[in-house]
C-alpha cells in the first residue's frame, strides 16, 4: 500500500508486529511503521469484524487503534515506534481476561 522513498537514511528501529520481527525508521509513528511494513489492516472492528487500517494519521479517526506493549486501544498514529516495542493488532471486541471470567463462572 505504501513504499519508503529511497535513500532517506536515518536510524533503524526494531519492533514486533504480533510477535513477528519488523523494522521501522526512527521517527515513524506506529501507524506509519505498520503502513511501511505492508500490513493491510491493523484491527478488525468490535461491531462487525470488518478489517480497518489507518485512515487520518492525525489522531482524529481512531482507526489505527493497536495494542502497544500490552496496553490496548492506543492511537498508533500519535505514538512514535521505539526499539523493542511490541505492537499487536486488535481482533474484534476485547474479551474479558480469562482469570476474571473463570471467577465469574465459579460464582
Amino acid at each position: 500500500m505504501f513504499r519508503r522513498l529511497p535513500d532517506l537514511g536515518g536510524e533503524t528501529v526494531n519492533f514486533t508486529i504480533d510477535g513477528r520481527p519488523a523494522t521501522a525508521r526512527l521517527g515513524d509513528t506506529v501507524a506509519a511503521a505498520l503502513l511501511a511494513s505492508g500490513m493491510e489492516s491493523c484491527r478488525t472492528t468490535p461491531v462487525s469484524g470488518a478489517p480497518r487500517a489507518p485512515y487520518c494519521m492525525m489522531g482524529v479517526c481512531f482507526e489505527c487503534l493497536v495494542t502497544i506493549n500490552g496496553i490496548g486501544n492506543r492511537q498508533g498514529c500519535l505514538i512514535p515506534v521505539a526499539e523493542g516495542m511490541a505492537v499487536e493488532t486488535q481482533k474484534g471486541a476485547r474479551a474479558i481476561a480469562s482469570e476474571y471470567s473463570a471467577k465469574g463462572d465459579a460464582a
Partner: peptide, 24 residues
C-alpha cells in the same frame, strides 16, 4: 472504511513524517 482508502491528508502526513508514498 476499507483498508487502502484513507484521507489525502493522511497520506501527506505519512510522506512528511516518514518519507512514505502510496504504492500501486
Amino acid at each position: 472504511t476499507l483498508p487502502g482508502v484513507m484521507t489525502a491528508g493522511g497520506a501527506q502526513i505519512a510522506l512528511k513524517t516518514s518519507g512514505l508514498v502510496p504504492d500501486g
